[in-house]
Design a protein around this nucleic acid. Structure first.
Length: 569
RNA sequence: UGCCCGGUCGUUCAAUUGGUAGGACAACGGAUUUUGGGUCCGUUUAUCGAGGUUCGAAUCCUCGCCGGGCAGCCA
């Protein structure tokens, strides 16, 4: 029996793509089967935008009991490399998707593609064009003028067959000839004006080596690859909408498996750019350290930053699928991240901007262990011991000599709680000659051990702290949004998009003090530094000194009250 | 002045296919709290415009307006 809430929960409406797929399944189109594909080009690293496509491609397949093929569109040997194939596989696995034994390559289909091209030629549906690239462009027409026929358009089938064979044999120079589909030069859609199917490129391919010197265009390879793999639903981004009539033309003329392409809008995110060209520029000009710089929107960058695969998938699931242009608030991504990290990240104390505190009534040379909860959101995570002693570090921002009304952390004469430890009261502020605060003298109340006062008195703040003698020294890298504006590519005349970079997207703090339990932290591990944010251990932590990357801050109401501009708005 | 696609809270996605415009994020208030975290409760804000069809329109029709894509031998 279903209750009202059950049906409410299960009634989450399907997006337009899942609706279409569900309908096809119900109507028995493709015999009720669902096969999708994720088709990256191995010429760069995957980024968060690709994750959206993966969530869709793999997600739809799984939800409808089908499969999703991983297919590399490796039709351009001059841009593609094996290295990218490997990194792409790593990133997909990291995100948690599985292509089983269906790792496919468009290059696997080069022979079949060649045969199909011959078949089109034989049917007088394709021809070899001797025009130069410039001439072809010239004759293609414009958005408002129709194209003109190539002078070679009416070659005989025999001549076309002969030229095409000789193209393949390597008789002709790069760019001297192409094979074109004979669709018609007067279509209002310029993509349909006798599209190029093959071009001559004397270059070795990362998989087929020097076997070929003619390579299929993406538009000629992609739909046919779908057909060969019997992909039922080929989910593409909006810019391929105008290509669909061409794909359908090939399917019809060849009489092959009729995959159905459905287009959706890619997801843009505020304060970020995902174009490979721009990302490469950031690296080449030295703004970023590489493709896995923790500020990169690449999956390897996000991974190094400390993002979890689950958070990324949750994000795209929440955002949904539609066809309109969009620019998703990066705060949504951060919200998904915090939501997950909050549940799984062990809590720990670390002081990143230290201010020394001396507990005057605590005996010198002594220390004790206090019990701390590892994760209040998950009591099964247990507890740990933290060392307390006479000399401590607290966060410099947690003390104000002359506090405003809403500041309820430590101040002269004020009592606060040290988390899991004691109440302390500030008795004296020690300054250097320059007037800088260098140390606080405090007293503690031994009765408040653990953090509660037997007499029931309250404090307004709880501070994190680290015992000086027991601290682990670490480097902490504070990352923030890469760009200072929502739309980095939106620039006024004379401005450069690089001017939109956030100049404080990285602050390195070489000497931070962390509780001793962090001594054994391993690269990739994630923690919540209480009251500061989520941090993960960077692979640079090799040399004995741990390095932590700030993944994301905690939500911070005080920053807002204090007029902090931490979110750039 | 070509063709294709799209326009719903600040953002993003919904609306049982013509029947009270809803969720999430953001923002703002309150409660609780040994993280100014978290949790809970509440509040504010939207159908691009003009006509038409209809008892009734975000949804259908017409005409506008605005945004995006397309003139690589890139994908």
């Amino acid at each position: 029996m279903t209750t009202a809430t059950d049906s409410l929960n299960s009634d989450r409406s399907l997006d337009f793509i899942r609706t279409a797929v569900a309908e096809d399944v119900r109507n028995g189109r493709y015999g009720g089967k669902v096969v999708t594909r994720f088709p990256p080009e191995p010429n760069g690293y995957l980024h968060i935008g690709h994750a959206k496509a993966m969530c869709l491609d793999f997600g739809v397949a799984e939800e409808f009991g089908g499969v999703c093929n991983l297919r590399f569109d490796d039709t351009n040997p001059v841009r593609e490399e094996q290295e990218y194939v490997d990194s792409i596989c790593d990133d997909i696995r990291w995100l948690g998707f599985d292509w089983g034994d269906r790792k496919c390559f468009a290059s696997d289909y080069f022979h079949q593609l060649y045969e199909w091209a011959v078949k089109l030629i034989e049917g007088d549906l394709a021809y070899v064009d001797d025009q130069s690239a410039d001439e072809i462009r010239e004759n293609r027409g414009t958005l408002t003028e129709l194209g003109r026929d190539s002078p070679h358009r009416d070659r005989s089938v025999e001549e076309n067959l002969d030229f095409f064979r000789r193209m393949k044999e390597g008789e002709f120079a790069d760019g001297s000839r192409v094979l074109r589909a004979k669709i018609g030069m007067s279509s209002p859609n310029p993509l349909m004006r006798d599209p190029v199917m093959y071009r001559i490129i004397h270059a070795s391919h990362h998989r087929t080596g020097d076997e070929w010197c003619i390579y299929p265009m993406y538009d000629w390879a992609h739909g046919q690859s779908d057909a060969l793999e019997e992909v039922t639903h080929s989910l593409a981004s909006l810019e391929y909408e105008n290509h669909r009539p061409m794909y359908d033309w090939y399917i019809k003329k060849l009489g092959i498996f009729p995959s159905r392409q459905i287009e959706f809008a890619r997801g843009n995110i505020t304060y970020t750019v995902t174009s490979k060209r721009r990302l490469r520029e950031l690296i080449e000009k030295g703004y970023l350290s590489g493709w896995d710089d923790p500020r990169m929107p690449t999956l390897c960058g996000l991974r190094r930053r400390g993002y979890t695969p689950k958070a990324i998938r949750q994000f795209w699931e929440d955002v949904g699928i539609a066809k309109r242009e969009n620019n998703i608030d990066i705060a949504k991504l951060e919200s998904c991240l915090r939501d997950q990290l909050n549940k799984v990240a062990p809590r720990v104390m670390g002081v990143i901007n230290p201010l020394k505190v001396v507990i005057e009534n605590y005996p010198e040379g002594e220390s004790e262990e206090l019990e701390a909860i590892n994760n209040p959101e998950d009591l099964a995570a247990g507890t740990r011991q933290v060392a307390f002693s006479r000399e401590l570090f607290i966060e410099r921002e947690d003390f104000m000599e002359d506090p405003p009304k809403k500041f309820f952390r430590l101040a002269p004469g004020r009592e606060v709680r040290l988390r899991y430890a004691f109440f302390i009261t500030c008795t004296e502020v020690v300054k250097d000659e320059a007037g800088q605060i260098v140390e606080l003298r405090c007293t503690y109340d031994p009765e408040t051990r653990g953090g509660d006062a037997p007499d029931g008195r309250k404090v307004k703040a709880t501070l994190h702290w680290v015992s000086v003698a027991h601290a682990v020294v670490a480097e902490v890298r504070l990352y923030d949004r890469l760009f200072a504006v929502e739309n980095p590519l939106e620039i006024a005349d004379g401005e450069d998009w690089l001017d939109n970079l956030n100049s404080t997207s990285l602050k390195v703090l070489p000497n931070c003090y962390l509780e001793s339990s962090l001594e054994e932290a391993r690269p990739g591990q994630r923690f919540q530094f209480e009251r500061l944010g989520y941090f993960s251990v960077d692979p640079d932590s090799a040399g004995g000194k741990p390095v932590f990357n700030r993944t994301v801050t905690l939500r911070d109401q005080w920053a807002r009250i204090a007029g902090g501009k931490q979110d750039g708005k």
